[in-house]
């Protein structure tokens, strides 16, 4: 923490994060007042209908929003540093599509797999992580040959659409039951995450985020380019492997339960660099965790369309917020290099 303005920003975002989390609990199609919330959490209103809504529905959803937001933001930051490309991110480079492919293979290949494996939360996460790892390694391989921003994005989109096509093929050849399972997942939102899933998702993401906090110094060295980083005593292959694994664990796990969420991973690091006015990972990385969590909570609040009966897909809300930020990045690219 270099100066007081950064500390103020951290405190401000922590408050925002807390505020959005609380609002996420309070707001929704069923109106619940603050006093009722207090009753529920003090244990006075146990086993009522409202208690069920809060405890089994809104609380896991709000926690999922925090975790997924942080996970996507940090994996986006990793990718931007790794590729030295300001427009990299899990969604844009097809990592999320890779995770979808993994889950699709699992759910629709269920004819060949034991049922226990298919409905298992761990299996779903594993499939998503392997899928995203596959795409990331492919994109990384190509990126060593094409070294400009735009080509890399096109390559990412291509891999993304290949993964998407494979998913379509799978859909048309799979049986009705497994198709239903997959369609349910692909429309999935933060609300589809139950406590059972959260028990798997939360430990993975939290451990990865904690491990991330040990990396800023080496990530900073990577900003100088690989040869300079080597000169500073950083083992490039070592840090790359760690970053790739963490990146896939974070993006894959987040996607495994919520479905693809666009642009959060790419946009949050830019918001953070713009606000904190630095590229130093010692500040940017923890800030990404807080800002990512806040922003996805906000998206979730908007997607619930409080005081109405309809619900928007979270993916659309995050695109509406994220895409303009990306456009702004492209226009103002000068100062926002990784």
């Amino acid at each position: 923490m270099k100066n007081t303005s950064n500390i103020i920003l951290f405190i401000l975002w922590s408050f925002l994060c807390l505020a959005f989390f609380s609002l996420d609990l309070i707001l929704g199609s069923v109106h619940i007042s603050l006093s009722e919330i207090r009753e529920i959490f003090s244990g006075a209103a146990e086993d009522t209908g409202l208690w069920h809504i809060i405890y089994n529905f809104r609380l896991p959803k709000a926690i999922t929003a925090l975790l997924t937001g942080s996970a996507l933001a940090v994996s986006g930051l990793y990718m931007q540093t790794l590729f030295q490309n300001p427009l990299a991110g899990p969604y844009v480079l097809g990592i999320s599509s890779g995770a979808s492919l993994g889950v699709a293979l699992l759910l629709m290949g269920s004819a060949f797999l034991p049922v226990v494996l298919v409905s298992n939360a761990w299996a779903q996460v594993g499939a998503a992580i392997l899928g995203s790892l596959l795409v990331l390694i492919l994109v990384l391989g190509v990126s060593s040959r094409v070294n400009d921003t735009v080509s890399l994005l096109i390559v990412g989109m291509m891999f993304g659409s290949i993964a998407g096509s494979v998913v379509n093929v799978l859909q048309s050849v799979s049986n009705a039951d497994s198709l239903k399972l997959f369609v349910m997942w692909s429309m999935g939102s933060l609300s589809s995450v139950t406590w059972q899933f959260l028990n798997v998702m939360a430990p993975i993401i939290i451990i990865c985020l904690i491990l991330s906090l040990f990396l800023p110094k080496k990530l900073n060295a990577l900003l100088l380019g690989e040869r300079y980083a080597t000169g500073l005593g950083v083992s490039i292959s070592g840090i790359k492997i760690i970053v790739i694994i963490l990146c896939c664990l974070l993006a894959g796990t987040a996607t495994a339960f919520t479905g693809p969420i666009a642009f959060i991973g790419m946009a949050v690091p830019h918001i953070v660099r713009g606000m904190f006015r630095t590229s130093d990972h010692r500040i940017v990385l923890p800030a990404c965790i807080i800002v990512g969590a806040s922003l996805l909570s906000l998206c979730d609040i908007i997607s619930q369309m409080p005081w109405t009966d309809s619900v928007l897909p979270i993916n659309s809300v995050s695109s509406l917020i994220g895409a303009p930020i990306i456009l702004w990045v492209i226009f103002k690219n000068k100062h926002l290099h990784g």
Binding site: P216, N220, A221, L224, L232, T278
Partner: peptide, 23 residues
Amino acid sequence: PTSSLRVCEIVEMGRFPYTNWFG
């Protein structure tokens, strides 16, 4: 590197081999 890092931040990295894990 086409970096948005500041001059002092880049020079600071020269101390990388001598500082702790957090730099």
